[in-house]
């Protein structure tokens, strides 16, 4: 009797392990399939439609129906908007992370934290709508310009990456041992000196990861950017001129580009480029973390 029950438990255990492992394997399978399908479809432009990768990467003329596939305007748009977001949102996010890990009284943290969670939850299309109806008119009035463009996109992205950067920097700062805070204080350092000279350097690799994930979030953001960029497929002349990004152009054109056309293939190539950037960022993160352990 006991033996039977033990046998059953043993069998359950094996079956369970099978389920657990196959569920885990789905993650591996998924990323492999995504990479494979995008690698294939994203290169059709080059070996089926005979567009040179160099033209795609560095060409500045874009006309989907006219057979012009220079994606440089979008690459530049993506990079500039993301760069702006990191320059503003990176330091601001780290500063707020410092606030939560070093300064915030418990009561304050408990009221501020849910606000951050709500900001994470607001859909990007709503951020786009806020940007379009709130920020763009504001920029237009302030700078006597159209209003939409890289500046608007950069500001919206800065806000959108904040929650990511804040919570990851807070985590990175919290794991710095308390003994370092005490050691610094015992030498007569002020709280700010401890933060800026000991804690931030000690948490550097974790903070780098926070910022890199902010980059990843910003570069892949689509609708918030599409609504405020102005969508002009040209190399932007200024932060105030209408522009386009890789993501926004995909969403703009995908509905129009016929299946099996070079136009659609070019959009797949842009998606592949985004995917490669994301994978590159993951690699960077692993390098940053490896530095910490050695």
């Amino acid at each position: 009797m006991v033996g039977v029950r033990a046998n059953k438990a043993h069998r359950d255990e094996r079956v369970a392990l099978g389920f657990l492992m196959s569920s885990s394997a789905i993650f591996v399978l998924a990323i492999v399939l995504i990479l494979a399908f995008l690698a294939y479809n994203g290169t059709l432009l080059f070996w089926q439609d005979h567009v040179s990768p160099l033209t795609f990467l560095f060409g500045t003329d874009w006309d989907g129906f006219g057979g012009q596939f220079g994606a440089a305007p979008f690459i530049i748009g993506s990079l500039v908007a993301t760069g702006f977001a990191i320059l503003v949102g990176g330091p601001l996010g780290v500063a707020i992370g410092l606030f939560f890990s070093e300064l915030a009284p418990k009561r304050v943290a408990e009221t501020f934290k849910p606000a951050i969670e709500v900001l994470v939850g607001i859909p990007s299309i709503v951020y786009g709508w806020l940007g379009l109806t709130l920020l763009v008119p504001f920029i237009a009035r302030t700078f006597h310009a159209e209003g939409d463009g890289l500046l608007a996109a950069g500001i919206v992205l800065s806000i959108m990456i904040l929650p990511t950067v804040i919570s990851l920097s807070e985590d990175a700062l919290r794991v710095v041992p308390n003994s370092l805070r005490e050691g610094s204080a015992a030498l007569g350092a002020t709280r700010w000196e401890t933060m800026s000279r000991v804690l931030v350097p000690a948490a550097a690799s974790g903070l780098a990861v926070a910022v890199i994930l902010g980059v990843a979030r910003a570069i892949g953001e689509t609708l918030a950017v599409q609504l405020v960029l102005g969508n002009a497929a040209v190399v932007p002349k200024s932060l105030l001129a209408p522009a386009a990004a890789l993501t926004s152009e995909i969403v703009m054109d995908m509905g129009d580009a016929p299946e099996h056309s070079a136009f659609r293939h070019a959009l797949f190539s842009m998606a592949l480029l985004l995917l490669l950037i994301a994978m590159g960022l993951i690699t960077l993160i692993h390098l940053a973390l490896r530095r910490r352990t050695t």
């Binding site: 492992m21 885990s24 394997a25 993650f27 591996v28 998924a30 990323i31 492999v32 399939l33 995504i34 399908f37 995008l38 479809n41 994930l213 990843a216 570069i219 892949g220 953001e221 689509t222 993501t247 995909i250 969403v251 995908m254 959009l267 797949f268 998606a271 985004l274 995917l275 994301a278 994978m279 960022l281 993951i282 993160i285």
Partner: peptide, 27 residues
């Protein structure tokens, strides 16, 4: 195996949603 699963999860987490959308479209 565990490293592979965790790495895949991290990678999957950074795939931009528009790229995932195109993957869905393709498949």
């Amino acid at each position: 195996f565990r490293d592979m699963v965790e790495f895949s999860a991290e990678s999957l987490a950074t795939v931009p949603s528009i790229v995932m959308g195109l993957f869905g479209l393709i498949v």
